[in-house]
C-alpha cells in the first residue's frame, strides 16, 4: 500500500536523456527525442499486447498483468544468475513459465468469474498482491539486475550533421524489434491459424462458438495463458532497462492500460496505434516542456478520448 508508483515513462525518458534536451528548435535534438519515443513505443507495445489479448478477446480486466511482467523479469534473472544464460535465450523460458502460471490462474480463479467484470478485477488485484508477496518471500525486496546482451550495448548512429549525431541505442532498437515481432506473431496466430479463428469466434459469439463444437473453455485457457506469456516476454525484454523488484509490474500497469484503451481492442493494430500515439506525444511534449507535465497531459488526453470514444480510436462501429 505504501509503494509509490514510479512512473515508467518518465523514468525511461530520464534514462534516455544523457544530455538534457535543448529547448530551442533544434532538428537534431528533436529527431533524437522522437527516436527516444520509439523506445517508449516499444515498451508500451510489449506491455500492452498481452493486455489487449486478455481484455480485447476475453473481456477480462487483468490487474495482475504487471505481475506477469515481473514474473518474466525474475525468470530471466534466475536463469541468468544460475546458468549465465544470454538474455535472448531466456525469452522462451519466461514465456513458458508465465504462460503456465497464467493457465493455472485461469483454471482456478478467472474461470469462476466469467461475465462478472468487477469481480475479476478485484480477484486479479488480490492475485497481484499475492504474487508480489510470494516473490518478495523468495527473492526478498532487494533490487536485482539483469545484464543486457553485449551486442545490444552502444548506440547506432545513422548519420552525423556538423558534429551532432542522430543516434538511438541498440537496446531501444532491440525493444521495438521484439515488440513488432511479437505483434506479428500474435497477428499471425490470431488471423491465420485454426486456433486463432476459434479464438475470434469465441470473442464474437461465445454461445454460437460453443454450438459449433469449439472447446471454449480450452480456448479461454490458452488465450489467457498466451496473454500472460506475452507479459512475461515483455518482462524479460524490459528487465535489463531498470532493476528487477517485486513492485516493478505496477509501474507498467497503468500505461499498458492506457495504450490498450486508446487504440481500442477490437483489432490488434489498435495497440500499435495506441502505443505510437502515447509514446510519441509523450516524447514530444517532454521535449517541449518536461516529463511529468507530458505524462499529465497525455493521461488527460486519454481521459478525454475515452469520454468521446470509449471503444478506442481504431474500432469498427458495431451494432450491439
Amino acid at each position: 500500500m505504501n509503494v509509490l508508483p514510479i512512473n515508467a515513462l518518465s523514468s525511461l525518458i530520464h534514462l534516455a536523456q544523457a544530455t538534457p534536451a535543448a529547448k530551442s528548435f533544434d532538428p537534431i535534438a528533436i529527431t533524437n527525442q522522437l527516436l527516444n519515443g520509439v523506445g517508449i513505443i516499444g515498451i508500451l507495445l510489449l506491455t500492452g499486447l498481452g493486455l489487449s489479448i486478455t481484455f480485447g478477446v476475453m473481456r477480462i480486466i487483468n490487474l495482475a498483468h504487471g505481475e506477469f511482467i515481473m514474473l518474466g523479469a525474475y525468470t530471466s534473472f534466475v536463469l541468468q544468475s544460475n546458468f549465465k544464460m544470454d538474455l535472448l535465450l531466456t525469452i522462451p523460458f519466461s514465456f513458458l513459465f508465465t504462460a503456465f502460471i497464467g493457465a493455472i490462474v485461469e483454471r482456478t480463479i478467472v474461470r469462476r468469474l466469467y461475465g462478472r467484470a468487477v469481480e475479476t478485477l478485484l480477484a486479479t488485484w488480490g492475485l497481484s498482491i499475492v504474487i508480489q508477496g510470494v516473490v518478495k518471500l523468495i527473492f526478498t525486496a532487494q533490487l536485482k539486475y539483469v545484464k543486457a546482451p553485449p551486442y545490444t550495448r552502444g548506440n547506432w548512429t545513422p548519420f552525423q550533421i556538423g558534429g551532432q549525431a542522430i543516434e538511438i541505442s541498440y537496446y531501444r532498437l532491440f525493444i521495438i524489434f521484439m515488440a513488432l515481432l511479437l505483434l506479428g506473431i500474435t497477428a499471425f496466430l490470431l488471423y491465420r491459424t485454426k486456433l486463432g479463428r476459434e479464438v475470434r469466434a469465441v470473442t464474437q459469439n461465445r454461445d454460437m462458438a460453443k454450438c459449433l463444437g469449439i472447446n471454449t473453455s480450452l480456448v479461454d485457457m490458452l488465450t489467457f495463458a498466451y496473454g500472460c506469456g506475452l507479459a512475461g516476454v515483455a518482462g524479460t525484454v524490459i528487465s535489463s532497462l531498470k532493476s528487477v523488484a517485486p513492485p516493478m509490474g505496477q509501474d507498467y500497469l497503468v500505461d499498458a492500460w492506457m495504450t490498450v484503451v486508446t487504440g481500442g481492442v477490437d483489432k490488434l493494430v489498435g495497440v500499435l496505434a495506441g502505443a505510437v500515439l502515447i509514446g510519441e506525444s509523450n516524447a514530444a511534449i517532454a521535449y517541449l516542456i518536461n516529463d511529468p507535465t507530458a505524462r499529465v497531459i497525455v493521461l488527460a488526453a486519454v481521459i478525454v478520448l475515452i469520454r468521446y470514444r470509449p471503444e478506442g480510436l481504431f474500432t469498427v462501429q458495431k451494432r450491439s
Binding site: L4, P5, N7, S10, I61, A117, L121, V254, W257, M258, V261, N290, D291, P292, T293, R295, V296, L299, A300, V302, I303, I306, R307, Y308, P310
Partner: peptide, 29 residues
Amino acid sequence: FIFRSKVSGVYITVITLAISSALTTFFVS
C-alpha cells in the same frame, strides 16, 4: 464530464485509474 456520455462500467474505472496516476505524477513533480 464523464457521466454525461455513453461511457460506462469498466471505462469509468479506467478513467479513475488515469486520474489517480496523473495526479500522483503532478503532485510529485
